[in-house]
């Protein structure tokens, strides 16, 4: 394993900070996310309100900490579930091979050919636009990428000497999958998780920004950006801070993914 780059260390630090701040939002946030203060609406950043206040006098900094819970939860949870499903599906498909493999991959092809954002919108129309609906929609469209990747890796690993050796020693298929193939997939999977989380965060925030994502009163960084959009001309701070949170988080995950890939992937 090679050392991690400086950019990936900084990224990991930032992500740790923003995750902890979101998780402990109820204890860290100076105000509750819905406390209104009609005496202090649309104020700019100040000592009392670090990121200013919105149309209803709510503290933007507190709302960003709370919004992070939704944005990060959706990003991390959908990615973990999608990677789990995709890994199982791809590993079975690649390992079994033959007719089953081509049948399973044909199904993946169809899902893959559908435009992601469009499908997410259609599914959330049915499932409702809460956190649960978005979680489901994002998972349903994103597991196929992982399935394809894992299948390719399994096809490669299947031919390796140590899998052949395990066969020769009389190990069963399940044992080979669990003891020989899955452990060797770990590096690739860690990198994949790091690159898929920002994709999910981006999809959620984009939908919430155009008003087709999370419904109020629940709010993510995307809905906060949407709130700020209508006031951009005179109160740009309302859209600046949520956008910055989304951008820096996505950027950090990408840097982290690159660092992990350089450190873990022997082929790059």
């Amino acid at each position: 394993m090679r050392p991690f780059s400086l950019s990936s260390k900084i990224a990991a630090g930032f992500l740790a900070l923003i995750t902890l701040a979101s998780v402990f939002a109820p204890w860290l946030a100076p105000y509750s996310f819905e406390t209104q203060n009609t005496m202090n609406i649309l104020s700019g950043p100040s000592a009392a309100n670090w990121m200013g206040t919105d149309q209803l006098g709510r503290d933007l900094f507190s709302r960003i900490l709370y919004g992070g819970r939704v944005s990060l939860f959706i990003g991390v949870a959908t990615t973990l579930v999608a990677v789990l499903i995709g890994t199982l599906y791809g590993a079975v498909s690649g390992y079994v091979g033959g007719r089953w493999d081509s049948l399973m991959m044909r199904a993946v092809d169809v899902v893959f050919a559908l435009p992601d954002l469009l499908m997410i919108i259609l599914i959330t129309v049915v499932m409702g636009r809460g956190v649960a609906g978005l979680f489901l929609a994002l998972t349903l469209v994103s597991w196929v990428t992982v399935a394809r990747l894992v299948r390719g890796e399994v096809l490669r690993l299947k031919e390796s000497n140590y899998v052949e050796a395990a066969h020769a020693l009389g190990a069963g298929d399940l044992r080979i999958l669990a003891r020989e193939i899955l452990p060797n997939l770990l590096g690739v999977l860690v990198v994949t998780v790091s690159f898929r989380i920002p994709v999910a965060i981006l999809a959620e925030s984009t939908l919430s920004f155009i008003g087709l994502g999370i419904l109020p009163p629940a709010s993510s960084w995307g809905t906060l950006a949407n709130d700020g959009w209508s006031a951009i001309k005179f109160y740009p701070h309302l859209i600046l801070f949520p956008s910055l949170a989304i951008f820096l988080t996505i950027l950090s995950f990408n840097f982290l993914g690159e660092g992990l890939r350089d450190a873990l992937d022997p082929r790059s």
Partner: peptide
């Protein structure tokens, strides 16, 4: 290029509107 990949199009769009238009 990495910044470009990471910036959501709606964030870039709103920054452009604010800067170049408003």
């Amino acid at each position: 290029a990495t910044l470009g990949i990471s910036v959501p199009s709606f964030v870039l769009g709103t920054v452009l509107v604010w800067g170049l238009s408003h």
